[in-house]
Amino acid sequence: MTGPIEQVRLNLGHVELAAQLFGPADGRPVIALHGWLDNSNSFVRLAPKLTGVRIVALDLAGHGLSGHRPPGASYALWDYAFDVLKVAEHLGWERFSLMGHSLGAIVSVVLAGAVPERIARLALIDGVVPPTAGVEDTAERMGMALQAQLRHGKKPKPVYAALEQAVEARMKGVVAVSREAAGLLAQRGLEAVPGGFTWRSDSRLTLPSALRLSDEQAQSFVRRIACPAQLIVAADGMLVRHTALLEQLPFEQKQLPGGHHLHLNDEAGASLVADCFNRFFAIP
């Protein structure tokens, strides 16, 4: 894939999302969804290596250059799924494929299970179903989340005096990434503020979710998926230890060397993922 990356903004009515477009306009339509606290630069190494596809890589709501949800709103999985359907409506895409990493992979599975007739293919990177919880914990989790919402906003975002300090902080985040990957995410994720730089992302993204699905509910999305699906499992990532889950998935699975961000950490990892996805998307 060659050519400049086109930058666009999509007004969905309830929120405005930023996106980057890769590939020929007549390629297979693909919406790409990044991971939690990342942004669409998650795909800047991978997308140019893919052929025959038109990729719309979104900054999910609250991330990157996209708008934040209004006060009182949340960032539930189904809210992201609705955003994707609105993007497809905006683009005039009745049927399309999804490429997702981590949180983006989870949203992709939820959407493909909810509206299987709309999704042509699923290309997933080290993510598949949402974290689950037992039904007996539902009330306690709801209370914890409500209290966290009440406390939200009392602690300011961290400000980094120099851009490099912010990059180093991202390298050591909940999921560590390479320096180059952190730099790429920072290009789209940081903003200048008095005293230095801070992350653009909505601080509400770090609040605990009020509701988690049960194992059976999560698997109900997997069972309804009607399209071909390929899952890349990072050898040093987040899924590899969940062997019981992986064994019950009806997806084509490929384990590749690298960490959770193997498609972004370096060019070698991006090439390995691209080799798999190019074969996957080339199948009639």
Score class of each variant (00 low, 15 high):
residue 45 R to G: 14
residue 45 R to N: 14
residue 47 A to P: 12
residue 49 K to H: 14
residue 49 K to A: 15
residue 51 T to V: 14
residue 52 G to F: 09
residue 54 R to M: 05
residue 56 V to R: 02
residue 57 A to R: 01
residue 59 D to F: 07
residue 60 L to T: 06
residue 62 G to K: 01
residue 65 L to H: 08
residue 66 S to R: 01
residue 69 R to M: 13
residue 73 A to W: 09
residue 73 A to T: 07
residue 74 S to K: 11
residue 75 Y to I: 05
residue 78 W to K: 06
residue 80 Y to S: 00
residue 81 A to V: 02
residue 84 V to A: 07
residue 84 V to E: 01
residue 85 L to S: 02
residue 86 K to R: 15
residue 86 K to D: 13
residue 87 V to L: 15
residue 88 A to Q: 07
residue 89 E to K: 12
residue 89 E to P: 09
residue 93 W to V: 09
residue 93 W to S: 05
residue 94 E to W: 11
residue 95 R to G: 06
residue 97 S to I: 13
residue 100 G to Q: 06
residue 100 G to A: 07
residue 100 G to Y: 11
residue 105 A to L: 06
residue 107 V to N: 00
residue 108 S to Q: 04
residue 108 S to K: 02
residue 113 G to R: 00
residue 113 G to C: 00
residue 113 G to A: 04
residue 115 V to H: 03
residue 116 P to H: 06
residue 119 I to S: 04
residue 120 A to C: 12
residue 120 A to E: 15
residue 120 A to N: 12
residue 123 A to I: 14
residue 125 I to H: 04
residue 125 I to W: 13
residue 125 I to K: 08
residue 126 D to C: 13
residue 127 G to T: 13
residue 129 V to R: 04
residue 129 V to H: 08
residue 129 V to W: 01
residue 133 A to T: 10
residue 134 G to L: 14
residue 134 G to D: 14
residue 136 E to Y: 12
residue 137 D to Q: 14
residue 137 D to L: 15
residue 142 M to Y: 10
residue 143 G to W: 04
residue 144 M to Q: 09
residue 144 M to L: 15
residue 145 A to L: 09
residue 146 L to C: 00
